[in-house]
Amino acid sequence: MRQKIFTKIASYFFRGLLFVAPIAFTILVIQAVFNWLDGLLPVNVPGLGILILISAIVGVGYLGSTYFMKPFFEMFEQVIKKIPLLSLIYNSIKDLVGAFVGDKKKFNEPIMVQFDEAGKIFKPGFITRTDLSKVNMEGFCSVYMPHSYNFSGNILVVKNELVHPWDVNSTDAMKFIVSGGVSGIEEM
């Protein structure tokens, strides 16, 4: 009898944990990011720092879009490109951010790469370059394969005939990959 009651309580506990843990961690992450962003500016009013930061980013985005300021931003980038270490850091961050937002998004073509001759093993990823002929690799493409439960991945150079289109939304494909196949299926 006691064993049955303990098992029932443990079952309810784990079921509750499955509900509460994701909510709690999401709130903690949002709170940590908010506090970090808000703390970037030394303002003692909670939320004002992040509001100023967002306003400044929108303002810089607007100025960067105007015909008058574009040459100044381009000149700034040319100066940055001439400084060796700074250029590497700046361009890497710019390319990473540009891969997810802006006009030149890179992870918008989900695919499956065939890993065996029989066509029974596939790995999902995203095409990043369809043509590698400039680096003497005709008939190859570059594929980014994100890791599950991680902010990392691998870039593979793959023969074109091993790459199969995956007719799903790129956001749902990324959700599916990053979650280890647990999420994203319902949306597909």
Rank of each mutant, 00 (worst) to 15 (best):
W36L: 15
C141F: 01
I50E: 00
N44K: 15
P124Q: 05
I111G: 00
G16K: 02
P42Y: 05
Y149M: 02
D95I: 12
T66C: 03
K120F: 13
R15L: 12
L28F: 08
V113M: 03
M112K: 09
F34G: 06
V60Q: 08
F13G: 12
L132E: 04
D103S: 14
I9R: 10
H147E: 15
H147Y: 14
S183R: 06
G153L: 11
L156W: 14
L63T: 11
R2W: 10
E138Y: 08
G64L: 01
G139Y: 08
G98F: 02
I23E: 02
D103W: 02
V143H: 07
A32I: 05
I83M: 11
N108F: 03
F73I: 10
L162W: 11
N136C: 07
V45I: 15
E77Y: 01
N35F: 09
F34L: 08
T7H: 05
D172T: 06
L53H: 11
V135N: 12
L17R: 00
I177C: 04
Y12R: 06
D95W: 06
I89Q: 07
G39Y: 10
P110F: 00
V97D: 07
L88W: 02
N44Q: 13
P124Y: 08
T171D: 08
D172P: 03
N136K: 14
F115G: 02
L40E: 10
S142M: 03
I177R: 00
V163W: 13
N35T: 09
K134L: 11
K105L: 11
A32S: 15
A21M: 13
F100M: 05
L18C: 07
M137T: 08
S152T: 12
G16M: 00
L41Q: 04
E74A: 09
N108P: 01
S148D: 02
K81P: 00
K81L: 03
I93F: 05
V60P: 10
V33M: 12
L53N: 12
S55E: 03
L37D: 03
P71W: 11
S142C: 09
Q3S: 10
Y90T: 10
P124H: 02
K120T: 15
N154A: 13
E117Q: 12
N44C: 00
F107G: 06
E77R: 01
P165N: 13
F176Q: 09
K82F: 05
I89G: 06
I127C: 03
I83N: 07
G153N: 08
Q78S: 14
G98Y: 04
G180A: 06
K70A: 15
W166N: 12
N150L: 09
I89N: 00
G119A: 08
N150F: 08
